[in-house]
Amino acid sequence: MTKNMIMGGLAVFVLAVLSPFWFNMVTTTQAAPEPELLGPAKQAKKCVLETYDMRANHMSLLDEWRDAVVRDADRIYVAANGNFFNMSLSTGENSCLGCHADKAKFCDSCHTYTSVDPYCWDCHTNPKEIE
């Protein structure tokens, strides 16, 4: 190994380690999405879970809902705050997207920002796209 080869390799390594820094300098960086309530959700002051639980566990909740609906035909969810909800992601006024009108703002903004690719939409459609 000649000294030039070692120094060249070292320079490549240092650049690779610093890549998160320079990559954000040469590309435009997207800002963090701001949570925003739209549509009926703006007026309704109730949700399925508290904000913190919802942020942390909505994916598990949807997973349980899917199993309850598909396997047990159980379509009504009684929330901890006593409200009844239709266990549906995208069908009807009382579903997730029925209340939170804008999928792009409600689902996609955070999912895209954190590079999460949920497979909900392999089967479900966004109600707004059909109309």
Binding site: P20, F21, N24, T29, A32, P33, R55, A56, N57, C110, Y113, T114
Partner: peptide, 18 residues
């Protein structure tokens, strides 16, 4: 245990953009 992932990304992005 779950964390607020958007908040964490805000912070890590803050670190790499100085």
């Amino acid at each position: 245990t779950k964390v607020d992932i958007v908040g964490i990304k805000e912070m890590t992005m803050g670190l790499v953009t100085f």
